[in-house]
């Protein structure tokens, strides 16, 4: 998402690269979402009970903060929208390029999501073992020696940590609802 901006930009303006435009779009979308959430929570906070013992109730402090967040989000949207006016549209395929460049981060995030979902179901040991192993393979452990090290680490982090917590710290890590 790097490159130069269009020649059609107004004279006297600094060229704004595509990366900046992409960030501006990202900020606008993000702040619109924040604004929506802030408004929804603000309305919800209005329904919280007040107290006979204090002048401000449960909803007052959050409402104050939510109003501040909404104001800051609006300012952010105005600021970033101004950047959009003097940049050209993103080249086609730039979003795909960005996702491809971040494939490992998204891969790890995907595995971490599966790990979080699996842990309450299959327990700490059986969720951790495949997570640690798969993550290492995804990040480049492919040769037999690397795979052996990866398996040893996965075993230590799953069975070893579980035993340490159970027997030494007397903390039971999740056992798994399905097991």
């Amino acid at each position: 998402m790097s490159g130069t901006s269009s020649d059609s930009r107004p004279q006297g303006r600094e060229p704004v690269p595509h990366g900046e435009r992409a960030k501006a779009v990202g900020h606008i979308v993000f702040n619109l979402a924040l604004l929506g959430i802030a408004v929804m929570m603000f309305v919800h906070a209005g329904g919280l009970p007040s107290s006979a013992w204090e002048p401000i109730g449960s909803g007052s402090f959050p409402r104050l903060m939510l109003a501040l967040l909404a104001l800051l989000s609006v300012l952010m949207i105005i600021k970033e929208a101004a950047k959009l006016r003097h940049t050209s549209a993103l080249p086609s395929g730039s979003v795909g390029d960005w996702v491809w460049r971040h494939r490992l981060a998204f891969g790890v995030l995907g595995l971490f999501t599966l790990y979080a979902i699996a842990m309450p179901l299959v327990g700490f040991r059986w969720a951790t073992l495949p997570f640690v192993l798969a993550c290492q393979v995804l990040l480049g452990a492919r040769r037999p020696r690397q795979l052996a090290i990866a398996a040893a680490i996965a075993l230590f982090m799953s069975v070893g940590l579980d035993a340490l917590f159970r027997h030494v710290f007397t903390i039971s890590l999740p056992r798994g609802a399905l097991l």
Partner: peptide, 15 residues
Amino acid sequence: PKSIIVPVVLTCCMV
């Protein structure tokens, strides 16, 4: 290597 640090630390965070 990062390939080891990342899953190990993520597991510690989970624990």
